[in-house]
């Protein structure tokens, strides 16, 4: 700006960029102060959430020590409690959810941005956004009363044919026995994961679609001009451009999947051992533990719950900061919106 000012030759040696100083009026100074404090309030709330969880958890954490991370039981009043089982359960549910949700989200995002006819596009975007706001209790009802019973056949088929892979093994299942009971397949990590997948897929999808639709038209047309088919164009332009958004959207979905409560509570039957067999009845998660035990009266049991909450808080924060930084650094970044 200032370099455009013509100067006499003798001044050029000493030329420094001119300082531009704005003299803010009183009302503007007040406004900037208020706005800054509004921004700071968000930081304060977030810090308070962490601080209070930590403060409340202190009582239990001090007593349990490092065994809090390795114990599988949950009996705070008898002193034996830890989050090993629930953390593993949480991560497994989230992993099942995110594997399914990523496939669905990428597919739908590609469909909306590349394949769908123009007149349908606005409607599809609106309905995916609506799906992201469908209350989790609705998904939970559907999962517990409908999907659970429909998916048993699939669970059984997988465990019959792929039971030699440890995570697909089911204890108590009899292979190829048509009369075997199906209850060993209910309330499993797999079913909870499927329902959570349907909940997080719209969220991941809208981040990805946003990025896909902003792939530069010049490069798209270049790919077509070089003779690419539509899929060739997608593979060489759209997907590389949206790579950051795919990873970031997936991580955002993962963060949401880790914290999902009600839908998971309605489906799983809680067990407090590390249960890596995802098709088998019984699993648990941190949030469902808190939601089912929050009514406990003893302060120590409550403190233990707050400790579990703190673990969940730290976990989701880490996942989300990684997600945010990946999205922001990618080429399509800085435009993501949920």
């Amino acid at each position: 700006m200032t370099s455009a000012v013509a100067t006499r030759p003798e001044d050029q040696a000493t030329q420094k960029p001119r300082r531009l100083k704005t003299n803010l009026g009183f009302s503007d100074r007040v406004f900037r102060g208020v706005a800054r404090s509004g921004g700071a309030l968000v930081l304060v709330i977030m810090a308070l959430v962490g601080a209070f969880l930590a403060y409340r958890a202190l009582l239990a954490l001090r007593k349990a020590g490092p065994s809090f991370l390795t114990t599988q039981e949950w009996n705070p009043d008898s002193g034996a409690f830890g989050i090993a089982a629930v953390i593993v359960g949480t991560i497994l549910i989230a992993l099942v959810a995110i594997v399914v949700a990523t496939v669905l989200a990428v597919g739908v995002a590609l469909y909306i941005s590349e394949f769908a006819p123009r007149w349908l596009r606005g409607f599809l975007i609106a309905s995916v956004d609506l799906m992201a706001a469908v209350p989790s209790v609705v998904f939970g009802l559907w999962g517990a009363f409908f999907l659970q019973w429909e998916v048993l056949g699939l669970s059984r088929w997988i465990s019959d044919w792929f039971g030699w892979i440890p995570i697909f093994r089911v204890h108590g299942a009899t292979r190829h026995d048509p009369l075997a009971t199906e209850t060993v397949y209910t309330s499993s990590t797999f079913i909870a994961g499927l329902v959570v997948a349907l909940m997080v897929a719209p969220i991941a999808c809208s981040v990805m679609r946003e990025a896909f639709s902003q792939a530069p038209p010049g490069e798209r047309e270049g790919a077509y001009a070089l003779g690419a088919t539509r899929w060739g164009m997608i593979g060489s332009v759209v997907l590389p451009f949206g790579k950051g958004a795919i990873i970031g959207g997936t991580m955002l979905g993962l963060g949401r999947a880790l914290g999902e409560t009600i839908a998971v509570v309605m489906i799983i039957s809680p067990v407090f051992v590390i249960q890596p067999r995802i098709l088998e009845n019984g699993t648990s998660s941190v949030s469902s533990l808190i939601a089912t035990h929050y009514g406990e009266s003893s302060p120590f049991a409550l403190s233990a719950l707050f400790a579990a909450g703190l673990a969940l808080f730290v976990m989701t924060l880490i996942v989300n900061f990684i997600a945010a930084s990946i999205v922001a650094r990618s080429r399509s970044g800085a435009v993501s919106e949920v």
């Binding site: 977030m46 959430v49 409340r56 949030s287 989701t316």
Partner: peptide, 18 residues
């Protein structure tokens, strides 16, 4: 952005604690 993904349960737990 991180707060958007804060599990809603933890928001409840925070208010419960305070």
């Amino acid at each position: 952005e991180a707060m958007t993904a804060l599990p809603d349960l933890l928001a409840g737990l925070f208010i419960f604690a305070t």
